[in-house]
Amino acid sequence: GMGVALIPPLLIEAELASGELVVACARPLRGERAYYLVSPAQAQPPVLAAFARWLLGIAKGDLPAP
């Protein structure tokens, strides 16, 4: 009841087996491999906004990886 994520099933096999997570749509997603940071449309809490800026900096190569 908290949302939907697109994630390879092999990463959540235990959660699927236990019923903690369910498959919302069994149709496979076709496309480029990518990562996404998704958040609500309303204003982000400062900590989430800072994390998003940091993550974008890492992804763009502007910041050194930890």
Rank of each mutant, 00 (worst) to 15 (best):
A41M: 09
A34H: 10
F51P: 00
D62I: 09
E15K: 05
L16Q: 04
A50E: 03
L63Q: 02
G1A: 12
Y36E: 10
V38C: 11
Y36M: 15
G61M: 04
A14E: 11
P9T: 14
P8M: 14
I12Y: 00
A17F: 10
A41Q: 07
A26I: 08
E20G: 12
L63S: 01
G31R: 02
A14R: 14
G31E: 05
I7A: 00
L37G: 02
L29K: 09
A59F: 11
A41D: 08
L56E: 04
A5C: 09
L6R: 05
L16V: 02
A43L: 05
P9W: 00
P8W: 00
P46L: 02
F51L: 07
A14V: 12
R27N: 09
P46K: 03
V22H: 13
G3A: 08
Y36W: 12
A26W: 00
R53E: 01
I58T: 05
P45L: 10
L10S: 12
R27M: 14
G19A: 07
G57Q: 03
A24G: 09
A43G: 03
Q42I: 15
Y35F: 15
A26M: 11
A24H: 08
A34Q: 08
G31L: 04
A59E: 05
V38N: 13
L55D: 04
E15M: 15
L48M: 11
A34I: 13
W54Q: 08
L29I: 11
P8Q: 11
F51Y: 03
K60C: 06
P40D: 07
A50K: 04
V23F: 06
G1R: 14
L48A: 03
S39N: 08
V47Y: 01
Q44D: 03
S39E: 12
P28T: 04
G57P: 01
L48Q: 03
P8C: 13
L10N: 14
K60Q: 08
V23C: 11
A24N: 07
A24M: 09
P64E: 10
M2K: 12
